[in-house]
Each structure stands twice: as structure tokens, then as C-alpha cells.
Design a protein around this nucleic acid. Sequence first.
RNA 1: GGAGCGGUAGCUCAAUUGGUUAGAGCGCCAGCCUGUCACGUUGGAGGUUGCGGGUUCAAGUCCCGUCCGUUCCGCCA
Length: 610
Amino acid sequence: MIPNAYRSLHCNAVRPEHIGQTVTLCGWVNSARDHGGVIFIDLRDREGLTQVVFRPEENAALAEQSHTLRDEDVIQVIGKVAARLTGTENSKLGTGEVEIVATELKVLNKSEVLPFHLDREMSNEDLRMKYRYLDLRRERMNRNIRTRHKITTAARNYLDATGFIEVETPILSNPTPEGARDFLVPARLSPGKFFALPQAPQQYKQLLMVAGLERYFQIARCFRDEDLRADRQPEFTQIDIEASFIVQDDIIQLVEGLLASMFKAGQGVDIPASFQRITYQHAMDVYGSDKPDTRYGLEIVDMADVFATSGFKIFRTILEGGGVVRAINAKGFAGITTGQMIRLNELAIQAGMKVKQLAFIKVERNAEGVLEYKSPLWKFFGEDEQKALIAKLGVEENDIVFFYAGTWDDACNILGKVRLEIASMQKLTEGSTALNFLWVVDFPLLAYSPEDQSWVAVHHPFTRPKAEDVPLLDAGEYGKVRAEAYDVVLNGYELGGGSIRIHESDLQAKMFSVLGVTPEEQELKFSHILEAFKFGAPPHGGLALGLDRIAMLVSGEESIREVIAFPKNNKACDLMTDSPTNVDFKSLRELYVQSTWKEKKKEDAEAPAA
RNA sequence: GGAGCGGUAGCUCAAUUGGUUAGAGCGCCAGCCUGUCACGUUGGAGGUUGCGGGUUCAAGUCCCGUCCGUUCCGCCA
């Protein structure tokens, strides 16, 4: 650090080499140990701790003053660096071999007693949020915020070094027709009209490609007005990337290098130079998820060949009807408790299971030492089927196998969730430091939405269909068209996703038509991009990484709130500033906006007339 | 919109089947203490058990409602 009027060193920088020197430190009183005579103060700044000692025999007035110091007072201390007395060194502190013998003390600001301890974990989330500036003073939060800075800087440096140019795109932009709910901002100068805060700089970055920038990035704040989760905030940050004259492999290699630089900077670890790639189809078949956690097996196994001609009518009928029969072998989980079993079934029902109970086979040795296959359906299977099943799933003593038979969609969804829950119950990832990066590729381009009774973009409407699947698109077989889209996944978290884009005006217009965007709407909402694509738009594509999630995983946290300085709670409120807030009628009138919100009236419990 | 978990002193938590004056540790305040580092030690203050209602001789505990926090489902191209 550069010495200034307040200090000559950071607290953590005081070392034996400074012994004999007079130094000036400042910071917070981390703890005061008053022995009646000698007094010790642990002085803390953002870099660490130094012990300051006040001795009455050396300076009585100063020692007297030091008695008044309380935790979190902000002070400045001038003193001489001295070796600690033999036997009183503190090996827990970086500065534990030395101490400052104070010669001057200046109280820069007294502190009231804090509403909570800084040196202990707390569970009261609203109190943490109300006093977030104190929460951030805690060592863990300080570290998280600084780790985030490190990985952000690493990302900037990496992208700069690879020829990317950082460009800011508008925060005040237009609502998007598809996707998440927008935050709206009334436009005073255009009465009755609204801006929307961007869900992503998607269209702007594509237009920057048309502009010939070739390589763009942005540490971009994005906004989505949807319900929150531990890993979802209404405003969040993406590392947004777009490049021209590239193919999927180029983006993948770029992002692998980018993530390597970020994890190196944040965690000091070397991650694999390239990640495993699996198709969307494979991910869904084997893990029941498009963001699989591959730190453990518990793979979903297709049992069609075992039960194709089964005497067990339910399975055979479902298979004949085009459905699937799939199973998960939870190794060593035969000891599952009744409560856990209930929980699994509840989860499966919530995920769409049509029956009340997951079919299972529990393999345990009985009192006579004979292996028993405890199951409501074991007896319906023929001997060959039983053998085939055991072989295919590798069933052994103390395993429990869960089955689901039904549609492919339901099987993926239900068994995918069952898989995650079993892993959690078996604590399969506890203490794991594994970083299982992977790419999921070949996403479907379109999905049918029964709700909207129309086809919707799985990724977004600018995603390019795979060249070999364009005939399927032309033939109207929308469900079979794959996209040039890819997600990067770490330990079950989607870190980011992207695609190669459509750069031809006519193909883009065709996509809009398939998605049910009428020519009038296209003209109204997308004429800028359709027109831009007519003026020499280069082939291009990109990706966006969720910076908050990456920071969370690098810091070993379980919520992105722990790596965001001032996050919102799960009702999207900031308890520190009490935001959002009411505005007065005059402010609204200026914006030509009127609220339809009515405070809930207290309903007097009126008993119905007898 | 739905479900689970939680709300007791400033903080972290306890309180058996509904049963004495709701406790402990830390913190705080005051005293003592000259080598501690989670200093020690003596004493003290501190509670509308989130809020409202109900059942009961008796409610932190049971019931209903409500608010707050949190997790998940729906939602999140």
C-alpha cells in the first residue's frame, strides 16, 4: 500500500522486519483485552490484525485513554514495532511475532455496540440484511466480495487478451415478447410508454456484430421480474460474450479458457483444459436433467430391453404405447428410512408421478443369510427378467432400485428429481471438492407449450437451428429440430449458455413465424434486427456466464446472496434501505402512471346470517 | 399461487406429556486484575416467547388466523 496521512502500513503487513520502526496504523478495534494495567487491542483493517499494546509504565495518560476503547471503535495508532515477549507469540496471526507499542492514540470515531457478533455465524437473515454494511465487515463476507472482484478482473483480463472489446449497452431498453417478466420503467418524455430493463443484452450484442466489432463482451447487469431462489436474484450479473466468424467449438474453447482463468484467480485451482461434452438427449436420458451433477453416479437406466415382452402387464403396456421404463439403482441405500421413502414419493408426485408410490426393489439379507428381494412387484417378474434386471443394474446386497414407467418427459423429470434427492439423502457430495465441468450440447430448438398452445424457443428466438436439421424445420417437424446451442454446467449448476445465432433476415423471419410472431408484430418489435441482418450481418454466436453463480461456487457458498454486496430477500426487497417504496401521487402523475393497488382491507369476520 | 422449515434476552440456542419465578453461553454495564490473544474474575441489568384470537384450572408448548425470514415447486426464452 501507499503510505498516506492516515497510515504507513496495513495491519497485516507488520512483520519482524519492521521491528524498531515507528508505524502508523488505523482501523477498527477487533477486541480489547484490558488487564487493568497493560491493555491489548487487536486492530483490524481489511487486510488483517495487529496487536497493539498500551503500557501504563511507559505512558500513563495514553493507557488511561485506551481503557475507554470498545469493539468497533475506529482508531489511529502510532507506535513502535516490537518483538513480542518470548513465549507470547501468537502463531494464529500472520503478525503474531510482533506488536505495536503505542505512543499515540487517536479515536477517529466511537462505535455503538453492534447488533450482532462479527466473529460468529448467524442465522437471523433479516438482521444481516438490515445491517448489511456490518455483515460485510465480517471476514467471510469480506473474502467473498474480494474473491468476486478477483474473478471478475481475471475474466476482463482474459477477454481483453483474446481480443474482446467491452461495450456498455443500454439499461433502458424495450420489453421482450418472450421469456421472463420484465421490469418496466415509465417514460416521462413519451407519455404512456415504457422502457424495460434488459433481461440480457441479447439484441444489442448481435447488432454490435453487425456493426463489425467482431468480439464483444460486457460485465452486464440483467433484470428479471420472477420469483427468487437461493441462486436467483431479480438483478444479477452476466459475463456476456459475442463473437463473429466463429463456430460452436470456438466458443467452447474460449469459455473453457475463461473459466480456467477465473477459477485460478478465485480458488487457485487448475481445472481441466477441456470439459466433457454430452448431448441434451444423453443428459436427460441418464441424469433426467439438462444440468446434471456428475459428481456421483446414480444413473438412470433404460429397462426397455428387459421388460419388452414382460409378463408384467403394466410395464409391457407402457412400453408398447411408446413410453419408457427406467430405473435408478441407489447403491447401499436399502436402509432408507420410512420418512425418506415418504419424502421421495411426495417429490415424485409433485414432479408429475401418476401413481402414489415409486416402484422399488430392496435387496437385503435375511436372518438366515439369504438375499431377499423385497418389492411389491418382484413376484410379477419372470426368472429371466429378474436375472436380466440384476445384471443390467448391477444389483447387489443393500441396494434399492427405484422404477418409473410412463412418458419419456415424466420419466426424465421424476427420476431426475429422485436422483438428486437420493444423492442428498446419501450425502454423496458432502465434503467433495470435485469440479465436474461439462458441456450440454444439441439442445432442441423448439418445445411445444401446451399452455400457450404454440411452439416456443427453448433457448431464445435468435438461436440457429443445426444445418442438418433445417429440412425438419421446413417440414414442420419442430420437435425434432436441434439447435446450435450449448450450456456449460458445473456440479449441477448451469453456469452459462449460448448459441450460434441466426444471421440471415429470412431465416430469422421464418423463426418468428414458427413461434407465432405475426408479420405485424415482427415489423413492430423486431424490424431493427431483421433489417440489420439485411446489411451484411456476419455469422456470429456467443454465450453468457452467470457471474454470481460462479462467484458463489468459487467461494463455496450455497446462495448467490453471499457474493452480492447488497442483495434482495426472497420477496425482492432490500431490508436495509426498505426498498421498494411507496411514491407520492405527484411523482406518479408526472409519469402518467396510476396504481391499481389497493391495501387489503381488514375483513371483519362477519358470520353468515343464521 | 402452493408446500416444508423456522421466529424465545442484543446474538446463538435450551425449556420433558401443557405444570414452579422462561434458562445457558456469548455480548452489554460496573468493579477487580500488568502479557493477554474467545484474557480472567466478581456483581448487575436485560423477556409483550413475532402479532391477534381460541381451548384449558394452567399455553413458549395444543388449535385457528396473520406477519416476517428461509428452502423448494410453479415461474425463470
